[in-house]
Simulated assay, not measured.
Amino acid sequence: MPQDVRFDLPFSTPVCEHLEYARERHLRWVRERGLVRSDAGFAEYTSWDLPEAAARTYPYASAEDMVWLMNWFSLAFLFDDQFDASQPDRAERIAEVARELIVTPLRPAGSPPQVVCPITLAWTEVWTSLSDGMSLTWQTRFAASWGRFLVAHCEEVDLAARGLAGTLGVEEYAALRRRTVGIHHSIDAGERARLFEVPERVMAHPVMERMRDLAADTIGFMNDIQSFERERRRGDGHNLIAVLRRERGCSWEEAAAEAYRMTTACLDEYLALQARIPAVCDELGLDAEERDRARMGVEAIQHWINGNYEWALTSGRYAAAKDGPVATAEQAGRGSVDDLLAV
């Protein structure tokens, strides 16, 4: 299944006009904060082009906000790459750092981390900008989504450390993938990037809740398909195609076709629910201003579905690995060859 497999998305999203301005500052920040130190790691990191991912998923952010949004992207991706399945003893340290990342939004902005390492220090800095001007309600919602994402990440690490990563069935995997993909808090950040908040009544409505879940499923499954060749080369079983093949005893081609079908089914259901949002606004008796915020909330989801998809088509992070029979740490997809969890 090639990286450039195509999906028919019925909406397009713009790219932030501040991409190049923010890219330069972001790459300097990554170096200065010690998140990517070696030349090899930096070359691999730049091949991912996370700045473009941020510019596509948050197209209306200001120039300065786009910088810290890119910085935030780097933390999530680089933290994910800190676990090496060949070093199961790192699971405890990963969990310790994850707990620190979880509690950071629950403290006053700018509070120094109690678990100190490059990742936690950088997240404390980013959270100060991310939370600026947002209500306590929004901050609490973001913190909950962020916490579920990190807990799921630790569960995945623990499964790998115990040699159980290849035991999940399709339903179990899909439920875990919905959390490890990290889309709920990423959509939440779309409100901060555009300086608005979705009305609480809309956020609590079953239609919106289901839309957010389906967006996470769609994006997670798309990423699995687009990154499949790379992950298969690495022996990474945390991929929908690998799980389907193992559970159903089918060929790789059949598993890939089923993964594609599942992805399009999620997208179709999402689109059907999106069409119901005007009726939800009527049901809730929203005024014009509240309806506008609900509309932007839907657009934030669209930006993530389409923006992430367009970025992943060309990102080096999902490339099917480099030439040659043996991949180095960077070529296998680990952007940092440095330990970012040490003091």
Rank of each mutant, 00 (worst) to 15 (best):
N223P: 01
N308P: 01
R276Q: 15
D132I: 00
T13A: 13
L101F: 08
Y173P: 08
E231L: 05
A143G: 05
M296Q: 14
A329Q: 09
E253I: 01
G235R: 08
A53L: 15
W138D: 07
T263W: 00
V5K: 06
A54Y: 04
L214P: 01
E330T: 13
L121N: 10
G169V: 03
R194Y: 11
Q82F: 04
A257G: 12
A265C: 05
I187D: 08
R246E: 08
A43V: 05
A204G: 02
E171N: 11
R6S: 11
A43R: 13
D268P: 00
S12I: 01
T104Y: 00
V170W: 03
I183S: 07
D65E: 13
Q274D: 13
R148V: 05
T57Q: 12
A342N: 09
R33Y: 05
R141P: 00
N239I: 06
D217W: 03
Q226W: 02
L313C: 10
A327R: 06
A40F: 00
T104P: 03
A152P: 12
H184A: 15
T124P: 00
N71P: 07
V243A: 05
W252E: 15
A320V: 04
Y270L: 15
G147A: 14
T328E: 02
Q274L: 09
S145I: 00
E330R: 04
N239A: 07
A342C: 10
A54P: 11
G166L: 06
R291F: 04
A342W: 07
A175Q: 12
R37V: 15
D323T: 09
H18M: 00
G34Q: 05
H26G: 11
A300Q: 06
A85K: 09
G34Y: 04
A242K: 02
A22H: 08
A320L: 04
R232K: 14
P14S: 10
T57D: 03
A275L: 08
I225W: 00
E172A: 13
R212L: 14
W127F: 12
L195T: 12
M208D: 08
A255M: 06
P118K: 06
A161V: 04
G34N: 04
E231P: 08
G147W: 02
R291Q: 12
R179E: 14
A272Y: 03
L159P: 04
